[in-house]
Design a protein around this nucleic acid. Structure first.
Lengths: 258, 258
DNA sequence: CGTCATTTGTAACGAATTTCACAAACGACT
DNA sequence: AGTCGTTTGTGAAATTCGTTACAAATGACG
């Protein structure tokens, strides 16, 4: 087999898989049924050999798939990647921190498309507890262990201030959460079996800010093309419906966006 | 010198620099005035040698700084990293897409702390144009070239749906924007001199989801400790004030959070 | 002033990741 | 069936990134 000598898949590979998945979903909705790695490169900016190699990691487990001279079947490939990422089946997630950011995140319409279901919202602000958010009632964060006994969610979105992040993370672990998407700029200390991924908005801006400065001085090149691009293909742009806005009614799954 | 043979700084290094900066700001506010690389490792999870090497990249331009046997002066180091990342001086940014996510992002209180100033908000929804957001008026996105002639912002946050992202990106480029933080899951095609950074919420969740699945099967290890941790040190947790909430009044800079 | 414990800066190494390059597989077409 | 253009899967090379290891620098202390 091709993957690591140990059985672990590199994080960069997983990130790209998520990109492929999203791309494939769009392709399928456009009625395309076969795609080559070269075309993937054209539309996502990810090297064709990289794409093939990323898939090859899973051949030992799922069997080969592409057909030489033809390419990959879009629907089937989509199904496989979804299965690899375990989002072929519903994944329950909870949100902690019902502030602006948390609220916006879980309102993101793409969540449903990707089989993520928000099953509970927590906060510790008494003014918020009991209030509704996206159809759920905001609960006291200290009740999370109780509540998650039923819900059995294993993924949490942590959108609380840095000062309380560690404390809340400990509550989450106690409640059986095993993966945390952390938006607070702190190092979370968690047991080994809990996975943390950090997202830092300011970090991203800082990187942009640096590049801006280097582009000014002189005329030399600043950044390799592949650096600037990690996501995937823009199709025919539709200049209407501009803002990212969550679907308010539970049935509004028609608008393809996210 | 130590950096790349060419003059470019690796993105991972820049990301860590942003982490150090944030950490140093907190340290300074706690009254600490000297720190060693070993202590940085303890509190941020980033290897001490990595920290020293990251700094050494800039010694050719800024001179050395740490003192053997002593460590680094917190304030001075903070100043330097801010200067490297060009956030020692105000950076004007614009937001395009005044939906939930965009609104939450620019309301993030840490922006001001890091010298990022939101100078304009754009959208194309007529219902939103003219309305206020965080003290600014939402403008029609088609007026951006005009408006940015005065404002001269060079960084944009792009929080629009995938379908319009490419179109809007072109407007941004035309308006003189040179760095884009893109939240839409599409590959933006922009001129070489424009930098794009993509942030994908769903991608992060997908990675977590995968890890969850592998953790289940068998008892073997799943992830190296360094994998789970990229941000920095939690200090004494304060279990109050839970959600990330933007400061509503312009003067509310006192709450140290974010 | 000399010794000692500490910490920096960096060269050398090693690991991880990406890209290249090509044999083998496939379908179309004659 | 045989040839041709295309595309996959993958070993090997190349590149990028992180870690280890250690000489040199510093301050504290006798």
């Amino acid at each position: 087999m091709n993957s690591n000598s140990n059985g672990r898949v590199p994080v960069p590979t997983l990130e790209r898989l998520a990109t492929y998945l999203r791309f494939l979903i769009d392709l399928e909705q456009s009625g395309v049924d076969t795609i080559s790695s070269a075309e993937v490169e054209r539309q996502t900016g990810i090297n064709a050999a990289q794409f093939r190699k990323d898939l090859s990691v899973f051949y030992p487990y799922f069997g080969e798939f592409g057909k030489p001279g033809v390419g990959y079947n879009v629907s089937e490939l989509k199904r496989r990647i979804a299965r690899i990422l375990k989002i072929d089946t519903e994944q329950r997630i909870v949100l902690v921190g019902a502030g602006n950011l948390g609220s916006a995140l879980v309102g993101y319409p793409g969540l449903k498309e990707h089989h993520f279901t928000l099953v509970a919202v927590f906060d510790n602000n008494t003014a918020k507890i009991g209030q509704p958010l996206w159809g759920l009632t905001i609960h006291d964060v200290h009740r999370i262990t109780d509540i998650n006994l039923d819900l059995q969610a294993r993924i949490a979105i942590l959108a609380v201030p840095a000062t309380s992040a560690q404390h809340v993370a400990e509550l989450l672990v106690e409640a059986g959460i095993r993966a945390i998407l952390n938006f607070a700029p702190v190092l979370l200390r968690v047991p080994e079996h809990v996975f943390v991924r950090n997202v830092s908005f300011l970090q991203e801006l800082a990187v942009l800010s640096y590049h801006l400065s280097t582009a000014d001085e002189g005329e030399e090149d600043h950044l390799s093309p592949k650096e600037a691009q990690q996501t995937f293909g823009a199709k025919s742009p539709d200049p209407d419906a501009l803002e990212i806005e969550a679907a308010h009614s539970p049935t509004a799954r028609t608008r393809k966006q996210e």
